[in-house]
Design a protein around this nucleic acid. Structure first.
Lengths: 180, 180
DNA sequence: CCACACAACTAAACAGTGTTCAATTAAAAA
DNA sequence: TTTTTAATTGAACACTGTTTAGTTGTGTGG
């Protein structure tokens, strides 16, 4: 997946390279969808680790943590283009429930952002908990949008040499509007 | 494309339904990529028309125009899920130049947003033209991110009943930060 | 009116794909 | 050692995109 990308990915070839036959994928994972979910969940885990590592190495103030977080978000996506894009290329049929461990891998990322945003906003009252959660989702969407359009090359966003910087500007505008 | 979605779309079946053979697509469009670009460009045109129609029907103040624009953005995407997502599902090989008319269809949308943002910001000096353009791209990315995560159902953004409202909140925060 | 040229279109072939499933092999239990 | 269970295969099926030789139709110049 990392080297061919979602469009050119072939379960048959993946099985071949692993020294197995096609059928084994279906026996082990139950179907192609579950296999792709497993692959993408691994990407999610690596992504979360990358973000945590960047945060652990951030010694500055609270602004610095947000900056490190967003920069690490973009850095991972760029360094793992195909794998990162595959996460969003694979449309999951919502009728079929996904495995608990895979669900957890996906929610871990939201959890990190939630923790850091709450930290930045300062002791959040329990009353604002819901508003904060909505803001977190929205900030993720904001950063995602910048990253996705950047990597896909859509629009003439290309003439933007620092999309992460633009995303950060939007994030801080939103955060500032929600403080105190 | 509208009824099957990008993943299940088949050029062979499209040709069959149109009463042609597969080869004709290759003769007319030169290749599958160009065919998909033509399809998506048509979606872009319909999308732009939808936005313009919403703006034409907006009689309120400047805030109302921005609101109408973003709401129409989401409305079109929701009403044309598959076609809208296909725009971003189809990764164009940047080595091959796309037709001029298709390029125009894509840039028209950016043009609309540019016009409305400039209008909202008030007479923009020529000096700020570049800053405005960067902001416009960033706002598009912001709204795109909300819409994409919403329709794909990624993250637990689902528990958000008004993603367009969240996108609008972010847009106005950004616009306010960039006024005079 | 005819032969010709040219465009549009087809149909078949090729190498791939996802998906299923009877048959086989390997491992574990009795 | 025999039997049961699990893991794995490989072939079949119906698709897909892509290419190309060949066929059809249509309008033009003589």
């Amino acid at each position: 997946m990392a080297e061919r990308g979602f469009a050119k990915f072939s379960a048959r070839e993946a099985a071949r390279r692993a020294g197995y036959s096609v059928g084994t994928i279906y026996n082990v994972f139950g179907g192609l969808d579950a296999y792709l979910i497993a692959i993408n969940s691994q990407t999610f885990r690596a992504w979360s680790e990358g973000l945590e590592a960047a945060l652990a190495g951030s010694t500055g103030d609270d602004d610095a943590r947000i900056i490190a977080l967003v920069r690490a978000y973009f850095a991972f996506a760029e360094a793992n283009r195909n794998a990162w894009m595959a996460i969003y290329d694979h449309r999951i049929d919502r009728s079929q429930a996904i495995a608990k461990q895979d669900e957890a891998a996906r929610e871990a990322l939201t959890g990190i952002v939630d923790r850091e945003v709450t930290r930045w906003l300062g002791r959040g009252d329990a009353a604002d908990a819901d508003a904060t959660r909505r803001l977190v989702r929205s900030l993720i969407a904001t950063v995602h949008g910048h990253c996705a359009l950047w990597l896909s090359g859509s629009y003439a966003l290309m003439r933007e040499e620092d999309p992460a910087g633009q995303a950060l500007a939007r994030v801080f505008e939103a955060l500032s509007a929600h403080r105190g």
